[in-house]
Amino acid sequence: MNPAPAPSVPLPAPVAAEPPSSLWRDAWHRLRQNRLAVAGGAVLAVLGLLCVFGPFFLSYSYQEQNLDLGATPPSAAHWLGTDTLGRDLLVRLLYGGRISLGVGLCATIVALTIGVVYGAIAGYVGGKTDAVMMRIVDIMYALPFTIFVILLMVFLGRNIVLLFVAIGAVEWLTMARIVRGQIMTLKKMEFIEAARSLGLGNRRIIFRHLLPNALGPIIVYTTLTIPAVMLLEAFLSFLGLGVQPPMSSWGTLIKDGAEKMEEFPWLLQFPGVVFSLTLFSLNFLGDGLRDALDVRASKD
C-alpha cells in the first residue's frame, strides 16, 4: 500500500496575493465560454421567467375547473391538456414552477449554507469540537422526520418559511459530512500549511483557500439536493405542510400524474419533462460553475 506521492510542485504562489475581483472575473469569463453551461443557464432563466410572468398571459387560472370537460389530452384550447377536474395543465405547471423553483432554490441554499459552514468548521477545527459537531449530525439523522414535520406544523402553524426550515433541516446533514471530509484532507496540504505560516486568520483560510478547493463535490451535491428537495415538498404537502390544494407544485403534479400514467399520460409527461429539463440545466450550469471556479485549472 503505497502512500499517494506527495505533491512535488511548490505551492502556487498567487494563492494569497491575487485580488479576488480578478478571480471572479476570470471565472465569469470561463463560464461564458462553456456552451453547455450557458445553455443550461438560459433554459433556467427562460423557465423562471415563464413561471413568474406566464400565468398573466393565459386565460385560465390554476383553480378554474370544468367538471364536464374532465381530463383531456393537449388541444388548441389547452396546450398541455387538462387534469381530471378539467383544469388547464399549463397554468398549473407554471404556478407549480413558482413553488418548486422557489422551494428548490431557497431550501437548497439554506441546506447548502448550513451544511458547508458546519462541515467546514468541524473539519477544520477537528478534535473535540469536530466530535461533538458530528455526533449532533448523527442525532439529527436519526430523529423521525415525519414526527418532526407534524410537530413543527402543530406548534408553529403552517407557512412557507416552515417548509424551508423543515427541508433545510434534513438536507444539510450529508452536505456537512461531505464538506468535512474534503476539508480534513485539504487542510493537510502544503498550500494550507503555507497559508497558515503566513499568519492568515482561520476564517480567511477556510473561506478563501479551503472551500474553493472543495467546490466540486459541493456543487455536485447541491445539484443532487435540488431534485430531492422538490420531491420532498410533495410528501410535506401530504402531511399538510407545503402547498395546499388547489395550488400545485411540480412535486404534487408529478406524483398525481404518476398515479394516472396509463390513463392520462400527459399529466405525467409534461411535468416530468419540465422537471427533467430543469435538472439537466442545473447540472450543466453546476458543472460549468465548478470548472469556472476551479482554482487550479485556472493556472493552466
Partner: peptide, 22 residues
Amino acid sequence: YIMRLTRGGMLEVLNQDYIRTA
C-alpha cells in the same frame, strides 16, 4: 448519486498536482 459524486470527486483529484506529477 454515486455516479455523480464519483465523477465530481475524481475530476477534483485528477487536477491535483500529485496526479500531474505521476
